[in-house]
Design a binder for these strands. Sequence first.
DNA 1: ATAGTTGCAAAACCTTTGCAAACGG
DNA 2: CCGTTTGCAAAGGTTTTGCAACTAT
Lengths: 156, 156
Amino acid sequence: MNKPFQSSDGDDLLRDAGLRVTRQRQAIAQVLIEAEDHPNAEQVLARAREHDESVSQATAYRTLSVLSEKGLLHTHTFDKNVMRFELADRPHHDHLIDVETGEIREFVSAEIERLQRKIAKAYGYEIVAHRLELFCRKAAPDETEERQDTADLSES
Amino acid sequence: MNKPFQSSDGDDLLRDAGLRVTRQRQAIAQVLIEAEDHPNAEQVLARAREHDESVSQATAYRTLSVLSEKGLLHTHTFDKNVMRFELADRPHHDHLIDVETGEIREFVSAEIERLQRKIAKAYGYEIVAHRLELFCRKAAPDETEERQDTADLSES
DNA sequence: ATAGTTGCAAAACCTTTGCAAACGG
DNA sequence: CCGTTTGCAAAGGTTTTGCAACTAT
């Protein structure tokens, strides 16, 4: 019984990256798999230490760095100076950031994805990766009620 | 004869931000107006010093910071850790980054903009700012020739 | 056995800040 | 004039690195 795509298993994730499986890296991989948010390095380290106290900052940064380079982890910089991480094995999605609360919602728009590819192609490029972030604020009650808009959202 | 929108004049830019007009800030504003790329703080400082040697790092960062806060400057973080700047008075556009060369092209898609607003609205939000970056690689010659794709590009 | 990995502490890197002197309006 | 702005140098926050000991394979 092998995992189809998502390396929901930490050891697999590490091996996929060509890394040796160590206690410390297992702890980090586990954190990434369990994460439902977009933790930064400091948070990954703190959570990993709950699994294995011995994880050092250096190892956390080194592991996150390799996993990112190998494409197994996606990175974001929602706020100024810190890099945030997210497993790459999840279906692609973009982010909507509530600028008041910092809350991050994920969304997918097949339509936007399509347009992006179209644009890149028009310039003679193919997309390697992309990043779409909407910094938003809760809207005023809204007078024009366009409820059917939701239709575009989840076509992935 | 007043400028309609773009403060193509450095002093105006500074006054729009509620700042006093100093030699150093004039140099920085000039750099931003002349910039055809997306310089980071270090580059802005270096270029500003060509206009006025006395500009210090502190002033560069402080000025860029205020201009950004006042919304006169847009910021990006294409690469990991450095913030890049760009005058906000230009028509909105997104970025296509050539991952091989680092070259940055700008594009506009009214269609994507529209979809973004639609998505935000569906979640009950309104967009304050957004960021769309396509990390691309020059495409292989391409077998299916879709030249008319260019149509979507410049509807702004 | 041995190449890869570790923690530690120091360094590197980008950005911010305290302060007294200098300056703009 | 008086509040703002300056340069300097030091501090801040995040990420990287050199090294000797340790460990997965």
